[in-house]
């Protein structure tokens, strides 16, 4: 079973950077889109709210696999040039999870007590200052645990890039599958463990951020619980 280990293990590891790029790129795009769309949903302008709503519902209401094929196969026909698979993948990961993230941002901003905003108004803060100095730092602490779940969902979704031939870990195993059928259990085992380790890294970073953000607000840092991901209800939405 382990005869060809030295051969296929490096091949699988070659896919790891691609998985990491897709995850990091997806997370970066998710953060930007979630903040923009989340705040847009709270805008006073009806048009802005409507546009943000359409984006969020469109991406939450359809399947991620469909979105992937759509961006990879349909968009090139419409705009006239081929997209690099990894770029198309990052775009879908970001757009899809950004829509879920927008709801998190909206909820977190709404959860900041009204008196905080009123206090900032009384202190003659400009709207931008209110948002940046008062509302967002408090909302940020609320956002971190659900964003942790969201990023782990995103990491798991990078496996879907298999469908558009991004040479990430799952695709690497698929390429090796016809020739190393007898070692399949080991190969899948390896990537499952790698995904698990990446998920633990994400949770570790997010926990650290949570403590740092709570300390900045003068709150007691949240207690350390299980190091494994606690993906709560509604994670995939």
């Amino acid at each position: 079973m382990f005869d060809n280990f030295g051969f296929f293990f490096p091949r699988i590891l070659e896919g790891l950077p691609q998985t990491v790029y897709a995850t990091l790129g997806g997370i970066a795009l998710t953060i930007v889109l979630a903040l923009v769309a989340g705040l847009a949903m709270l805008s006073r302008l009806r048009v802005v709210r409507f546009v943000a709503r359409v984006y969020v519902e469109a991406f939450r209401g359809t399947s991620e696999v469909v979105q992937l094929f759509w961006i990879y196969l349909v968009v090139p026909i419409l705009v006239g040039f081929q997209v690099v698979p990894l770029a198309a993948g990052i775009a879908v990961l970001g757009l899809n999870h950004g829509a879920y993230g927008a709801e998190i941002v909206r909820g977190a901003v709404q959860s900041v007590p009204k008196a905080q905003v009123e206090g900032a108004v009384a202190l003659n803060f400009t709207p931008a200052q209110r948002l940046r100095r008062v509302v967002l730092p408090q909302a940020f602490v609320e956002m971190l645990p659900p964003f942790n779940n969201l990023f782990i969902q995103l990491l798991k979704s990078t496996a879907l890039l298999f469908f558009i031939n991004v040479p990430e870990m799952t695709r690497q195993v698929e390429v090796l599958r016809p020739n190393f059928g007898e070692s399949l259990a080991t190969m899948y085992g390896i990537i499952l463990v790698l995904y698990l380790l990446l998920a633990i890294v994400i949770t570790g970073v997010m926990r650290w951020l949570e403590r740092a953000a709570a300390r900045r607000l003068g709150r007691r840092p949240p207690s350390r619980t299980s190091a494994l991901a606690k993906v709560s209800a509604g994670g995939v939405g």
Partner: peptide, 18 residues
Amino acid sequence: EFVRSTPLLVQVFFLYYV
């Protein structure tokens, strides 16, 4: 915890091929 931290697609492959 393991199932929730790893991709469904890989689990599907594992169940189907292994």
